[in-house]
Amino acid sequence: MNGWTELDRFLHTDPRDVGCEEAMAMLHVYVELVAQGSGAEQRYPGITAHLRACGPCSDDYEGLLAAISDPDA
């Protein structure tokens, strides 16, 4: 990997992207809506845009979603 993909993604950031701080502040709410199938993408488009663009925040989202979705956890 040469880093061009990350640079290209950064340069074409969605203007709705709320950034890491706001996305992390609302992540628990967003994950609950996703788990319930309640239209999180429509309700929080800025968080959706951010999670598509930010690998570390996306990892946190995936981990939290897995944690609340796993009945054995």
Rank of each mutant, 00 (worst) to 15 (best):
P45L: 01
A35D: 11
F10R: 15
P71W: 01
A25R: 12
A53W: 03
A49F: 03
T48L: 06
V18L: 10
A73H: 04
D8N: 10
L65G: 09
R52W: 08
G46Q: 02
E22A: 13
G55F: 09
A35C: 05
L64F: 11
M24H: 06
A53R: 08
R52K: 15
A66N: 15
R9E: 11
A23R: 01
M24W: 00
A53S: 13
P56Y: 03
S38F: 02
Q36W: 04
L27M: 13
Y44H: 13
A40P: 05
A67G: 04
D17W: 04
Y44S: 02
D8W: 13
L7N: 06
D8K: 14
P15T: 00
P56V: 07
A66K: 15
E6S: 07
G3E: 09
R9G: 05
N2Q: 07
D70I: 08
L27E: 02
G46H: 02
V34C: 11
D8C: 08
G3M: 11
P71H: 04
A73L: 06
V31W: 00
Y61T: 02
A67Y: 09
M1A: 02
E41F: 09
S38C: 06
G3C: 08
R16V: 01
R43F: 00
D8Y: 12
A73Q: 11
S69F: 01
A53E: 06
S69W: 02
D70E: 12
H28C: 12
S58L: 09
E62D: 11
L11S: 00
V29K: 13
L27N: 03
E22R: 13
H12W: 03
G39Q: 04
H50M: 08
G37Y: 00
A49Q: 05
Y61V: 05
G3P: 12
M26L: 15
A49T: 07
S38M: 09
G3V: 09
